[in-house]
């Protein structure tokens, strides 16, 4: 599963580190002083590393709970995110992480107790209910068998109903969630793309049918489920493809029970986009015409008209109050 496990020296005796290493006795263990020595180096090739990623077990320092980017989530304004992990098991060609990080290795911050402390302080400092996103720098659930994230963080949020947790994922790893009583303040948000887009650009991501099965099981168990139709990548048959996707999805799930549904276009900071083009010069997606505005790059041919058209199709299936648009 991993080509190596890097461990920050200070963490060698950490119980979470020992437990993970015991599960992978064949994987070489390499010590380092600080994860940045491996992860943040210049002249790394994300694409090559993705062929044999390593796991880096590290300690997160400094601010751990940060304001979510504008328009990231449904709360429209007072959302926060925390990242117990950097990078993802999957290999979506459009993923902005490829442009954001120099390395494709997975970083898992094992000092959950420090996250807990900062989250608790944050909960207390908030005047009103707030939303905490997990899954901005990674896929929240895909790594669950290694990270045991749910075991630690679900009970924390269960004790603090004023704080909502969104787990954003493309994974079918819901077994752990199903072992728990559903939490009213936890939302499992599944990112979905049309089957054509997924086949083309979402390497290693579980098939749509399997993900819908997982969502259905969650709904049946009483968990709140949300849908994130993103990133929409403009193409010749995009409307038909999404129309088909909407039909498939809404036939399978309990639409009234959906917490929220959103649409978001393919766009990312221009610096990330340029970096990704350098990594994948052979990818047709990055040869399409683009437009850059205010430091963000998006495909030409998408934009407001396309999103409005898709919104109108989407509203054939859901109630207006369930919808928001990703910025």
């Amino acid at each position: 599963m991993f080509s190596a496990i890097y461990i920050e020296q200070a963490l060698q005796a950490h119980p979470r580190v020992r437990e993970i290493c015991q599960r992978y006795p064949q994987v070489p263990v390499i010590t380092c002083s600080h994860y940045g020595e491996v992860f943040n180096r210049k002249a790394q090739n994300f694409r090559l590393q993705k062929q044999a990623p390593a796991l880096i077990l590290a300690q997160k320092q400094g601010e751990m709970v940060l304001p979510a980017p504008a328009g990231y989530g449904f709360e429209q304004g007072s959302g926060f995110y925390f990242s117990h992990m950097l990078n993802c098991l999957y290999d979506c060609r459009y993923c902005f992480l490829q442009g954001m990080y120099r390395s494709a290795h997975y970083v898992l911050f094992v000092n959950y107790e420090d996250f807990r402390e900062q989250l608790l302080a944050h909960f207390q400092s908030q005047q009103s209910a707030s939303v905490y996103y997990s899954g901005y720098d990674c896929d929240s659930l895909a790594f669950e068998p290694v990270s045991r994230f749910c075991d630690y963080f679900l009970p924390l949020f269960a004790e603090h109903p004023q704080a909502t947790l969104e787990l954003r994922s493309k994974s079918t790893q819901v077994r752990k969630l199903l072992e728990y009583e559903p939490l009213d303040n936890c939302i499992v948000a599944m990112s979905l793309a049309s089957e054509a887009s997924a086949a083309r650009w979402e390497a290693k991501v579980p098939a749509l049918g399997k993900r819908l099965d997982a969502l259905q099981r969650l709904q049946q168990a009483g968990w709140k489920v949300a849908l994130r139709f993103e990133p929409v990548i403009a193409g010749d048959r995009i409307i038909e493809e999404y129309q088909q996707l909407f039909r498939t999805v809404f036939e399978k799930l309990d639409v009234d029970a959906l917490h929220s549904v959103s649409l978001g276009e393919f766009r990312m900071p221009s610096g990330f986009y340029k970096q990704i083009v350098r990594l994948y010069p052979d990818e047709a997606l990055f040869a399409k015409p683009v437009q850059t505005e205010q430091g963000m790059t998006a495909l030409a041919g998408g934009g407001e008209t396309l999103i409005r058209e898709l919104e109108s199709r989407l509203h054939d299936f859901i109630q207006p109050h369930q919808y928001y648009r990703c910025a």
Binding site: S3, I30, A52, A54
Partner: peptide
């Protein structure tokens, strides 16, 4: 998989290899 320079204390990390070579 890791190189340490005994005289300077500096460490370097060649990328892990995908094959089965120890």
């Amino acid at each position: 998989n890791k190189i340490s320079d005994a005289s300077s204390g500096a460490s370097f990390y060649p990328s892990p290899w995908s094959g089965d070579q120890p």
